[in-house]
Computed example of a mutant assay.
Amino acid sequence: MQQADGTVDLVDEEYVVGLSGAALFAALAGALAYLSVPYPLSPAPVTLQVLGIFLMGVFLGAKWGGLSAVLYVLAGSLGAPIFAGGGAGFGTLLGVTGGYLWSYPIAVVLMGWLAYGGLGIGSPQETSDARLVAALAAGTLVIYAFGTAQMLVINELALVEAIMVGAVVFFPAEAAKIAAVIAVVESGAVPDWSPTGAEQRG
C-alpha cells in the first residue's frame, strides 16, 4: 500500500507542477510577445514571443510544454491581447503571420521530445548544451515552415521569396534567442521543473 500511495503522490505532484508551469510559461510568452517591432524585411515583426516558446520546450518538456503552447494560442485566439504587439483574436490565426502561431504546440512537443527522449519534464541542467541546441533548432524549423507556408498562401508569394521573408531573414535573431535560452539554463535563473530538480529544492 505504501508503494501505491507513493505512486499517487508522484502523479499528483507531476500534475500540479505541470499545470502550474503550463499556465506560467503561457503567461510569460504573452508578456514577451509585447516586445515586438516591425521588420522591414518581412511582413512579420521581430518579437521575443518565440523565446517564450523555446522556454516552454526546454523547461516543461513535450507534454506540459505542449499544453502551455496550446493554452497560449487558445487564450490569444479568444481575445487575450498576448500575440505579437498585443494582438488577439482568431482572425490573427488566419492572417499572414498565423502560421507561426499554429506551429507553436507542435514545435514545443518536438523540442521537448528531442531534448529529453520522452513526453515528461526533463532537467535542462542535466542535458548537454548540444542536445538542447539541436532540439531548439528543430523547433525553429517547424515554426518557420508553418509560418512561411501560410504567408506564401495568403500573400501569394513565390516559394523562394516566401522562404526568404518568412524564415531566412529571422534566422540570426532566432540564433540569438537559442543562445539566450542556453544562457538561462546555465545561469540557473529559472528553476529546474523536473522531478530531479524538485528533489534538490526539497
Rank of each mutant, 00 (worst) to 15 (best):
Q2G: 14
Q2F: 11
A4F: 12
A4K: 12
G6R: 12
D9R: 12
D9W: 05
L10Q: 15
V11R: 10
E14F: 03
E14T: 10
V16L: 15
V16F: 14
V16P: 09
G18S: 03
S20L: 08
G21T: 10
G30L: 08
A33W: 02
Y34E: 09
L35H: 01
V37K: 00
P38V: 03
P38C: 01
P40N: 00
L41N: 09
S42D: 07
P43W: 09
A44N: 07
V46S: 06
Q49A: 10
V50T: 15
V50D: 14
V50Q: 10
L51D: 05
G52W: 11
G52K: 11
F54E: 07
L55K: 00
M56R: 04
M56I: 05
V58E: 02
L60Y: 04
L60Q: 03
L60C: 01
A62R: 10
K63S: 07
L67P: 13
S68E: 04
A69L: 01
V70R: 00
L71Q: 03
L71S: 07
V73M: 06
V73Y: 00
S77P: 04
S77D: 00
L78F: 09
G79K: 06
I82H: 08
F83P: 13
F83C: 06
G85Y: 02
G86Y: 10
G86I: 09
G87K: 10
G89C: 00
G89K: 09
F90D: 07
F90M: 15
L94T: 09
G95M: 06
G95C: 11
V96W: 11
L101D: 00
L101H: 02
L101R: 01
W102T: 06
S103T: 11
Y104M: 05
P105F: 01
I106N: 01
A107G: 12
A107R: 06
V109Q: 02
M111H: 01
M111D: 04
A115K: 03
G117N: 04
G118I: 05
I121W: 10
G122K: 03
G122W: 06
S123D: 03
Q125R: 15
T127Q: 05
S128K: 07
S128H: 04
D129P: 07
D129S: 11
R131G: 10
V133T: 14
V133W: 02
A134M: 15
T140S: 12
V142N: 12
V142Y: 05
Y144W: 12
F146L: 02
F146R: 00
F146D: 00
G147H: 06
T148W: 13
Q150K: 05
L152R: 14
V153P: 05
I154V: 15
N155S: 15
A158T: 07
E161M: 11
G166I: 06
A167G: 13
A167W: 13
A167C: 13
A167S: 15
V168G: 05
F170E: 09
F171D: 00
P172F: 09
E174S: 14
A175E: 08
A176E: 08
K177C: 05
K177L: 11
K177S: 06
K177N: 08
I178T: 07
A179W: 02
I182C: 05
V184Q: 00
V184R: 00
S187W: 02
S187F: 01
G188N: 12
G188H: 14
W193H: 12
P195C: 03
G197R: 02
G197M: 00
G197P: 04
G197I: 07
E199T: 12
E199D: 09
Q200H: 08
R201K: 12
G202C: 02
